[in-house]
Design a protein around this nucleic acid. Sequence first.
DNA 1: GTCTATACACCGATAGAC
DNA 2: GTCTATCGGTGTATAGAC
Lengths: 193, 193
Amino acid sequence: MTPARRMGPKGSEIWHSMLDAAEQIMQDQGYGELTSRSVADRIGVKQRLVYYYFSTMDELIVEAFRRAAVREIERLELALESKHSIRELWKVFIETTDTKLVSEFMALSNRIDALGKEVKDHIEKCRDLQVTGLERAIAAKGIEPTISPIAATIFANAAMLALHHEAGMGVTSGHEEVLKVIADYIDLHDPAD
Amino acid sequence: MTPARRMGPKGSEIWHSMLDAAEQIMQDQGYGELTSRSVADRIGVKQRLVYYYFSTMDELIVEAFRRAAVREIERLELALESKHSIRELWKVFIETTDTKLVSEFMALSNRIDALGKEVKDHIEKCRDLQVTGLERAIAAKGIEPTISPIAATIFANAAMLALHHEAGMGVTSGHEEVLKVIADYIDLHDPAD
DNA sequence: GTCTATACACCGATAGAC
DNA sequence: GTCTATCGGTGTATAGAC
């Protein structure tokens, strides 16, 4: 056994700022530009320090995902407690999900096995929360759902990702129509008081 | 003006095989592994030759996308001529679209401007063909559509991308339900004889 | 058309001083 | 904790021989 390299504390201020930098780089330039040097440059330290806080770049990436995933679950759980949970769950996704970051992590998960596992777990956790919220709301209002809660969840999330993606490229045809379908679905299953 | 470097002919056999290699590398390993060396290795030539056929790697990537896009348009146009055009259009997407490749090109389009333009044009072209086919089929059968053709097109494509992605990661919950919703939509708007 | 050889930049990761 | 310095590897791209 080679002795473990001396390492910095998880959760410290600089640890967080490195993950912040990593997120920003992936958003702005894609994972191809995410390197120990680009992270260090962005927060004004030397490259060597990145390897004091993370043993490999892959580990940094996995930690960045894990932190972002925890945040998203917290937002979803908060929305679930709301009176208008369907509306709030949808707002969490449409307003706070960073679709660019999502794509980068999904692409990376193909070549970093540890990340693939994290991503899979996270998707399943999110889906459970959303479906549970939808089912509960439907049961409470005593409405017959037009399509199954799980299918509705998948359609809504997939469409939102696509719309964000396309908008980022300058394509917007049909977007209004899609949002209207979703809004109608919400109005039907979670009517305002 | 620096004189243009001597270049190999577009469309030659080896030109195509280089683009084939590029596609395969992106599918298997992601665009991070797409390099002049990996392309050359895969077809058994030396790295230098890639720069005889393409002036930069970005150009190779754009050409790879352009070739794939032309193929997809051809498949869609063929499907449009069919009697059951909705069914056939859907089959083109679900059976022949390589979603992994799509994601890679979409990610790349954020940092290669020339590619971004190509991708935007292609999305719009595909959407037009699909929507036209759907509208025509609906008019021919004299049916009142449940949701607008363009929204249906976007939902279906987005859902298919998401399902493929998730399946690739081992997530399959809710997939059957989504496919059933789409199948029902098709049955309703494009009934078999 | 295809090759050898090479320039130069940048990557991940480590040794070890302060 | 943060640094300087450095290794070996690999990337893009070019010069120029055959």
